[in-house]
């Protein structure tokens, strides 16, 4: 079980090289979140975070997932700072005995990270004139009710 909060980019292949090595692992699932531009004018996201609480909150969510789906391994990396369009924001990897456990645990992690991990995103436009906070969606909060 590993949680990292960092400004540096990560190498997905390197992160997965030693992941889910337990003999009872039958499935691994990985998810990577990228900075997306829907408007054609986005330059970057500035991701603010709460040092300390981020690690604690994510570890709590990961522990819960590990217990609930009897995961054999779990990794969460979340970046902060200025991230440009196309850059990796975060990743989760889950390893379990079967694919259902690994997929469900990954979705659970993503749903909870969205509204319970203390990060805030600000969108900065290419010409620098627009800087606005991304607001939380009701649908993100609603997504938690399915768990």
């Amino acid at each position: 079980m590993k949680v990292r909060v960092q400004s540096d980019d990560f190498d997905l292949a390197a992160e997965l090289a030693g992941f889910g090595q337990a003999a009872n692992t039958g499935a691994t699932v990985t998810f990577t979140g990228l900075v997306r531009d829907d408007t054609g004018v986005l330059d970057c996201l500035e991701i603010e975070h709460y040092p300390g609480m981020c690690e604690r909150a994510i570890a709590k969510i990961a522990d819960e997932a590990a217990m609930r789906w009897a995961l054999t391994d779990c990794l969460v990396i979340h970046r902060y700072g200025k991230l440009h369009v196309g850059e990796q924001i975060m990743m989760v990897a889950t390893a379990g005995r079967h694919r259902v456990e690994a997929f469900e645990a990954a979705e659970y992690l993503m749903d909870y990270l969205k509204s319970r991990a203390p990060f805030w995103k600000k969108e900065i436009s290419r010409d620098g004139t627009v800087a606005q906070w991304v607001s939380a969606k009701d649908s993100d909060e609603d997504a938690l009710t399915r768990w």
């Binding site: 924001i89 969205k114 805030w120």
Partner: peptide, 10 residues
């Protein structure tokens, strides 16, 4: 004590 808007992680 920390005050902040609803979180937007992920």
């Amino acid at each position: 004590v920390a005050f902040f808007p609803p979180m937007t992680g992920g």
